[in-house]
Amino acid sequence: MLELAAHILDITENSIRAGAKLIKIKIDENKEKDILCIEIKDNGTGMTKEEIKKAIDPFYTTKKVRRVGLGLPLLANAAKRADGNLILKSARGKGTKITATFQLSHLDRQPMGNITTTLLVLIAGNSDIDFIYKHRHNDRQFVFDTRQIRKKIDDLPINHPEILRYIRNSIDQGLQKIATQA
């Protein structure tokens, strides 16, 4: 994975597989602290201590038994390479929270990639799940919430082409307003 957006897609797909109905994706670009933080939090089934071990160890077990792919070890590696780390918090019945931190200016920090397309893929393919996306860039913040979109569109499905076009525009514009740089 060459871009952080690909990691976000992969980790969020874990959340979806874990039966999450609400997934919060939070990005914080802080130039002053020189930190880029990505947090993905879901209300899925969560993991036992044993499952957490399996999730972060790439060699723990074979693919058949593995409920999550290589996404977490790869993200952990990407974070470490950029002088950061990955924290996984999860409990059965309580959901999972993954926080990946990077040194924002580190040469080996992967570029963000296309967030808008990533979110659209997630929303279009999982119309029964709600997503909240919060992106902070220094003192500016953009928030996108599919629950708010649902309120506006009544009975129309959220993955209707017209609605998806509207969502694409609002995310693009929102990200432009806060002038994301990562």
Binding site: L2, E3, R81, H106, L107, D108, P111
Partner: peptide, 22 residues
Amino acid sequence: DLLSDVMANSKAGDIWITRQIH
């Protein structure tokens, strides 16, 4: 493909072969 490694070990006049596109 690891930019810091390329910074540290490549030389002037090298042709750089990579998969990175950014």
